[in-house]
Design a protein around this nucleic acid. Structure first.
Length: 422
RNA sequence: GGUGAGGUGGCUGAGUGGUUGAAAGCAGCGCUUUGCUAAAGCGCCGUAGCCCAAAAGGCUACCGAGGGUUCGAAUCCCUCCCUCACCGCCA
């Protein structure tokens, strides 16, 4: 959520920055400014009446204590009371309308983000390693079937299409990857491990911007208003919602392993082969809550922490700096980390590391007490570290051997308990 | 699920209809004293918003949330949420 004061004071600046995302927000800005002006007008009227009421009510109290008549004043205040009821109603209508509009206006891209309208303007920031030399690489679907690592048909029997059921060595490999990543981030990168609930309240989903805009992509449980979290970003970032943290508590760094649930409405048929786009997948997520001055350096180290996973596993990847038009709704700056998939002959996104600045914090009232004693909004960041099915696919494809077996990367062997899968 | 107790500022905790936005203590900030530390003394210290070009200043709202009673509600009534305790049920 943007600060209404910023929009009020620098509307042209806001419009210009939003336009770099691809435009279409001018009408919303005009509308929110109109509502804001109206809201303040009514609020001022309302406050004058309340001040009158307070003053007269005190007089009534004083008169009564002196046993003087006060009926005329009481009648007057009663009348003011009626007007207040009416104005309060109108004021809250405008309040709601303003919040509604603000919740649907995207964040401003950071000035360092390359300007462009689609992924063709994204910038490859760096790449690591090399494509493995494989004469005729099998893709993960073929490898998985052959070695019985997962069973998509039977997963469909349980839950419908686009679900995974890992089996045997596949299930164990997934679990090994989870443990490997969590240990890395807790032991070497200083994150605190969290095992959060998977169901979250609506407010949390609003806080991290999944709602209200993307409700169609979320799984919800109608009767008790809970949602299945689409990413642990929701739980981890909302952990301290509505709190005021001490400056010395920052940065907060959390890592969690959770399943993630996504309807992927409208995504059917696109990039959905095998296990790379499914309704439920496991993910190790990294979240940081930082002071504003530090958030961009924390973004760099967050990406580095996620990249470290791929480096230790010896997987080729590249880091892409998203352009303004490709940026997510709430993000000010994002690096996508893409691992090489020999089977797809393409890079697959396994992590998206973003700095939301105070966009999420403002929605969830997440603040810290600054050195000068003022409460300010924190900055929030998150990135996968990493998403499992795609990592799994890239790993088995990259480490496949001519004889059809899969070599297990050395760093993973203590977790997996064997050096190969055959 | 049942019964009981409770939700007040960063924290602890007073406060049952009108100068209480809220006592007191702790924490925090500033100053004094001090070789340093510690201790002591004095002062300041909630949040959000509105008016004002701005500052100064003024005003409004907020005591879990939402309604209600009243001229006036932290205080009385209703509903809901949450926390704690005990009982029941349960992986």
């Amino acid at each position: 959520m943007l600060d209404i004061r910023l929009i009020r004071e620098k509307p042209d600046f806001v419009r210009e920055r939003l336009a770099t995302r691809g435009g279409g927000d001018d009408a919303k800005i005009a509308e929110v400014l109109r509502v804001d002006a109206e809201r303040r007008k009514i609020e001022t009227q309302l406050q004058r009446l309340q001040a009158d009421r307070n003053r007269l009510s005190k007089e009534i109290g004083a008169k009564r204590s002196r046993s003087e008549p006060s009926e005329d004043l009481e009648a007057q205040v009663r009348k003011i009371g009626d007007e207040i009821v009416d104005l309060t109603q109108r004021a809250s209508t405008f309040d709601e309308e303003q919040r509604h509009l603000l919740l649907e206006i995207a964040n401003l891209p950071h000035e360092s983000v390359p300007v462009g309208k689609d992924p063709s303007a994204n910038r490859v920031a760096r790449s690591w390693g090399e494509k493995p030399q494989l004469s005729e690489p099998a893709d993960h679907v073929a490898l998985g079937a052959k070695l019985k690592l997962f069973d998509l048909e039977r997963a469909a029997k349980l839950s419908g299409s686009d679900f995974i059921c890992f089996t045997g060595a596949g299930a164990k490999l997934e679990r090994a990857l989870i443990n490997f990543m969590i240990d890395l981030h807790t032991r070497e990168h200083g994150y605190t491990e969290i095992s959060p609930p998977f169901l979250v309240r609506r407010d949390c989903m609003v806080g991290t911007t999944q709602l209200p805009k993307f409700e169609a992509d979320m799984y919800g449980l109608e009767e008790n208003q809970l949602f299945l979290a689409p990413t642990a970003e929701v739980q981890l970032t909302n952990l301290h919602r509505e709190e005021i943290l001490g400056l010395s508590d920052l940065p907060k760094k959390f890592v969690a392993y959770t399943p993630c649930f996504r309807r992927e409405a409208g995504a059917a048929g696109r990039e959905t082969r095998g296990i790379i786009r499914v309704h439920q997948f496991d993910k190790v997520e990294l979240v940081k809550i930082t002071a504003p001055a530090k958030s961009y350096e924390e973004l760099e180290s967050l990406a580095a922490d996620a990249e470290r996973v791929l480096q230790l596993l010896g997987l080729h990847y590249r880091v892409v700096e998203l352009c303004t038009g490709d940026l997510g709704f709430g993000s000010a700056k994002t690096y996508d980390i893409e691992v090489w998939s020999p089977g797809q002959n393409a890079f697959l996104e396994v992590s998206s590391c973003s700095n939301f600045e105070d966009f999420q914090a403002r929605r969830m009232h997440l603040r810290f007490k600054d050195r000068d004693g003022k409460n300010r909004f924190c900055h929030t960041l998150n990135g996968s570290g990493l998403a499992l099915p795609r990592l799994f696919a890239a790993l088995i494809e990259s480490y496949q051997q001519p004889d059809g077996s899969i070599r297990v990367p050395e760093k993973l062997q203590p977790y997996f308990g064997a050096s190969e899968i055959r």
